[in-house]
Computed example of a mutant assay.
Amino acid sequence: MMPEHIDMLKKSMAKQYDVPQPVLSEDQREDIERSLQEASEYKSQVTVTYWGNNRIHTLAGVIERINPNMRRIELRDKEGDLNFVGFAFITDIEIM
């Protein structure tokens, strides 16, 4: 096989696992917003599920800050890294 064919096959196989961005109802969005506020206020451990790069990802940690101007949360994970997740990409939040 030629290198071009191999690249094309790799891209095609990777696209098989792409997930379209989930569409949330207004109730789901309100539940997420309420949970974000509660977790931020009490510095609770959370698991945030979000959509990015055509995949569903999960982060666990503590919400350091809700930034309404940037429309994102700042979440510190167990390793101490600060992660940023846009409001529009959050699909679920679970308070531990």
Rank of each mutant, 00 (worst) to 15 (best):
M1E: 05
E4K: 10
H5M: 10
M8S: 10
L9K: 06
L9N: 04
K11E: 12
K11P: 01
S12K: 11
S12Y: 07
M13V: 08
M13I: 11
A14H: 11
V19A: 04
V19H: 05
Q21A: 08
V23L: 04
L24W: 00
S25K: 00
Q28S: 02
E30D: 08
E33D: 09
E33A: 13
Q37I: 06
E38D: 06
K43M: 12
S44Q: 11
Q45E: 13
V48M: 01
Y50G: 02
W51G: 00
N54L: 08
N54H: 14
R55T: 09
I56N: 05
I56T: 08
H57E: 05
L59N: 02
L59H: 03
A60M: 11
A60P: 03
A60R: 13
I66C: 09
I66Q: 06
I66L: 15
P68M: 07
M70L: 15
M70F: 14
M70A: 15
I73G: 02
E74Y: 02
L75N: 01
R76H: 10
K78N: 15
E79W: 04
G80H: 05
D81E: 14
D81M: 14
L82F: 08
L82E: 04
N83P: 09
N83T: 07
N83F: 10
F84E: 14
F84Q: 11
F84M: 14
G86M: 10
F87T: 03
F87D: 05
F87L: 12
F87K: 03
A88L: 10
A88V: 11
F89Y: 12
T91H: 05
E94Y: 10
E94P: 01
E94N: 10
